[in-house]
């Protein structure tokens, strides 16, 4: 089994790179013939503080297997780690209260396997999304299926919430078979909403995304995102895209 990964990210227009609060993993090409691969995208909430740190803990936990969203008790170790990062800090009253409220993030996780059969499995909390493509055609959209499903206040995983709450809000995991040549796209919400809007309008957004990885492409991801924002087709939000191609 061989898998190739392209990752793209950009902060909100007007913000600096170090203010980007999405996270993704892994951040390098996966080794061949691993048998199983995991990928994750998390979207840290702007309204909270230390969201990036929480989003990073979630994606790395999901990819190294520490976190299994279907077993919410596995959240506790990550929550303790987040708390250990924040607790020692000497903070003014407003920052202390903000940290006490915790950080929040949406998370989508994809696992690809080729034993005993070629299959994939995904789990998610919130509105970061997975799209499964075959020959450029959308096979599965998870967990959001329509552009209108994107609300202002999705449920997010809290660094101080109890696992039971997450279990109640976990989207029903999705799974299916994959074939060589299939592609998987993981996205944070703004780009996922654009993707579904384009699909519903009868256009083929997967082509635009495939073009990004084309060696002859002269429009870098950030420029492409900015043009979508300027034309009001993409909400100004941190934007993350993982493009995963399973080649054999």
């Amino acid at each position: 089994m061989r898998v190739s990964l392209n990752s793209y990210w950009t902060p909100k227009a007007g913000n600096q790179d170090d203010e980007y609060e999405d996270a993704f993993a892994p951040d390098s090409q996966p080794a061949p013939d691993a048998g199983a691969y995991r990928f994750a995208v998390a979207d840290g909430a702007t309204e909270a503080s230390y969201s990036r740190s929480w989003a990073e803990l979630l994606v790395h936990g999901a990819v190294d297997g520490t976190l299994d969203l279907t077993d919410p008790s596995s959240l506790s170790a990550l929550q303790r780690e987040w708390d250990a990062r924040v607790a020692p800090l000497s903070l003014p009253w407003f920052a202390e209260e903000k940290a006490r409220q915790g950080a929040y993030a949406a998370l989508v996780v994809l696992e690809l396997r080729d034993t005993p059969t070629r299959h994939w499995r995904a789990s998610a909390v919130g509105d970061s999304c997975l799209f499964h493509l075959r020959a450029g055609n959308l096979q599965t959209s998870y967990p959001m299926r329509h552009a209108a499903d994107f609300g202002i206040s999705p449920y997010l995983i809290g660094s101080r919430c109890v696992g039971r709450e997450v279990a109640e809000r976990l989207e029903a995991p999705a799974s299916d078979a994959w074939e060589p040549g299939d592609e998987f796209l993981l996205m944070s919400d703004a780009l996922a909403c654009w993707f579904l809007t384009e699909t519903e309008a009868g256009r083929c957004p997967a082509e635009s995304i495939a073009h990004l990885a084309d060696p002859n492409n002269s429009t870098p991801f950030r420029e492409w995102v900015e043009s979508l924002r300027q034309s009001h087709n993409l909400r100004n939000d941190d934007t993350t895209l993982l493009r995963i191609a399973a080649t054999q």
Partner: peptide, 14 residues
Amino acid sequence: LQNLCIKCAKEEGV
């Protein structure tokens, strides 16, 4: 005002 300060607080300040 207190809640507004908390709402606008981030890691680096308000």
